[in-house]
């Protein structure tokens, strides 16, 4: 049998593979009481990388909320898991964007081949108005209000922007909605 024939290197592979696998599936091997594994786990526990600030920042960037503690824990575990990458020596190695990096990009001719399908596009949208997509009646980022500092004009506060941004309180309230 192949297994027996190669038992020598198999054993070596087995123990090496075992510790690797243990670390690779943090949290998965609950029934494995290998002390070596537990030690590894402790070594990897980071000083708290996940702060409230970071959570808020991520939620705003991703527009996805953690919802509850489980979500946060999931992130912490994910970071912990990813930290294993730092064991690998990648000196002198170029990052790989794509396995097709040696192939050159296909170029198409400047012909009009698409478009003119307004109906088809609007069909799948929940809210439309005439031939437009409709978004809630404010805009992200571009609210403007005037703080007149220019000395050429007599100061009068004019509200030139349309809509205020959601305030932090609003942000919190919609997070609470989900709980």
């Amino acid at each position: 049998m192949w297994a027996l024939r190669n038992s020598g290197c198999l054993c070596a592979a087995w123990s090496w593979g075992r510790s690797r696998l243990a670390r690779g599936t943090a949290g998965g091997r609950q029934t494995d009481q290998n002390p070596e594994w537990q030690l590894e786990e402790q070594k990897l526990l980071p000083q708290k990388k996940v702060t409230m600030e970071l959570l808020d920042h991520l939620e705003r960037l991703a527009l996805v909320d953690f919802r509850n503690w489980e979500g946060v824990e999931r992130l912490e575990k994910a970071i912990q898991f990813a930290d294993q990458l730092h064991e690998v020596n990648t000196e002198g190695i170029e990052p790989m964007d794509s396995v097709l990096e040696d192939r050159c990009l296909y170029l198409r001719e400047d012909n009009i081949t698409e478009g003119n399908c307004t109906k088809e596009l609007l069909q799948n949208a929940s809210q439309t108005a005439d031939e437009y997509f409709e978004s809630p009646p404010d805009s992200l980022q571009k609210a403007a209000f005037c703080k007149l500092r220019c000395s050429f004009f007599a100061g009068e506060n004019l509200v030139t922007g349309n809509i205020p941004l959601p305030k932090l309180e609003e942000h919190e309230s919609f997070l609470q909605d989900s709980n």
Partner: peptide, 22 residues
Amino acid sequence: NSKIFSGSQVQFIAPPNSLVSF
């Protein structure tokens, strides 16, 4: 004539969402 990553037309004035590809 057409956009940088798709084949829909480039034109300043046109009915809304008529020059839009998938």
